[in-house]
Computed example of a mutant assay.
Amino acid sequence: MTHKRMIVTGLAAFAVGAAGLSMFSYAEEEVAIESPEQMAFEPEAGEDIDRGDISYALGYRVGLDLRQQGIEYDVDTNEFADGIAAALGNDDPRMDEQALMQALFTLQLQMQARQQERGAEAAEASRAFLEQNREAEGVQVTDSGLQYRIIEEGEGDSPERGDTVVVHYRGTLVTGEQFDSSHDRGEPAEFPTDQVIPGWTEALMMMKPGAKWELFIPSELGYGERGAGSMIPPNAALIFEVELLEVK
């Protein structure tokens, strides 16, 4: 398989598989944690679902995945539907194999260029914010560069690496744009301390149950140069308000 074909195959593969990862997927080993909505849904046995609803749900999920990857601005939905219909119907595409590959490869290059531009903007905004924020009242800075402010102290034993914790949190960019919130989902998140971004791991191991902290996480302790989906650009510093509810 050529390098170009591998890139295009990878680009096409995310179209139906990417939506299940939460903000707490990180690693050296990626760990997918189901959302509360996924864990709570149990379809009834033998339940009849309209064929149109199934088709719409599948199309919506594919479209959502594409939007989360930042591709919505490049898609002509009429042409997109024609392409799906041709593939599902086993019809010959209106483009030959070389043209198909070239179109997807061009999209890949366009996405990379946009990500680089967003990354450069995020890096500058994050650098300026963290430089100013480290002097703010109540903000403490660790050797790694993590900044935090204690809102409530908490009491008891701090979690250790690998312990499972239960937290409520809200995450924003330095622009104030929210990208995730357990409060909005209506229930706290639960995960091991070593399966989150490094800034979270470091902070959680200093917190005590009942504590509420505000975290200011440099990019290198977050998602770094890769970013996360379309919401978190490369090189972005992250701000979290975290409440440690329980250590299991």
Rank of each mutant, 00 (worst) to 15 (best):
I33R: 07
D48Y: 15
A27Y: 11
A40P: 07
E47W: 13
R5A: 10
F14S: 04
S35G: 00
V31Q: 06
S25D: 15
L21D: 15
A32R: 14
L21N: 13
L11C: 01
R5F: 05
A12P: 05
A15C: 01
M6P: 03
A19C: 12
V8T: 07
F41Q: 02
R5E: 13
E29L: 01
F24C: 05
M39V: 05
E42S: 02
M39L: 12
G20D: 10
V16T: 03
L11E: 02
K4C: 03
P43A: 04
I7P: 00
E37A: 02
F14I: 05
I49L: 03
Y26E: 08
E47I: 06
E28N: 09
A40G: 08
Q38D: 04
M23N: 10
E44T: 07
Y26W: 12
F14G: 03
E28P: 05
I7M: 04
A45W: 15
L21W: 10
A32F: 15
T9K: 07
A18N: 10
L21Q: 14
E30H: 09
E37I: 02
M6S: 08
E42H: 14
T9C: 04
P36V: 04
D48G: 02
A19H: 15
M39D: 04
Y26D: 05
V8E: 08
S25M: 12
M39Q: 08
F24T: 14
I7K: 07
A32N: 05
Y26N: 06
S22E: 11
E30R: 13
Q38H: 05
D50C: 07
G17M: 12
A45N: 12
E29T: 15
G46E: 06
P43M: 04
A12I: 14
E47H: 14
R51P: 00
R5G: 06
Q38P: 01
M6T: 12
P43V: 11
A15D: 01
A45I: 10
A40K: 10
M6R: 15
T9Y: 15
I33G: 00
F14H: 11
M6F: 13
P36H: 02
R51Q: 09
A32K: 15
A19M: 14
D50W: 05
L11Q: 05
M23Q: 14
F24G: 08
G46F: 10
E42P: 00
F24P: 05
K4R: 15
E42F: 07
M23F: 12
R51D: 03
I33A: 00
A32V: 14
E42T: 13
A40M: 05
S35P: 00
A18G: 10
I49C: 01
S35K: 06
Y26M: 05
D50M: 03
E28Q: 14
F41S: 00
A27W: 07
A15K: 06
K4L: 08
S22A: 02
A32C: 11
A18M: 11
V16G: 01
E42I: 12
V16W: 09
G17L: 10
V16A: 05
G20L: 15
E29S: 09
V16N: 02
I7L: 08
A13E: 06
Q38C: 03
S35W: 13
S25E: 06
E30M: 11
K4P: 01
S25L: 02
L21M: 12
G46R: 11
A18C: 08
I49D: 00
E42G: 01
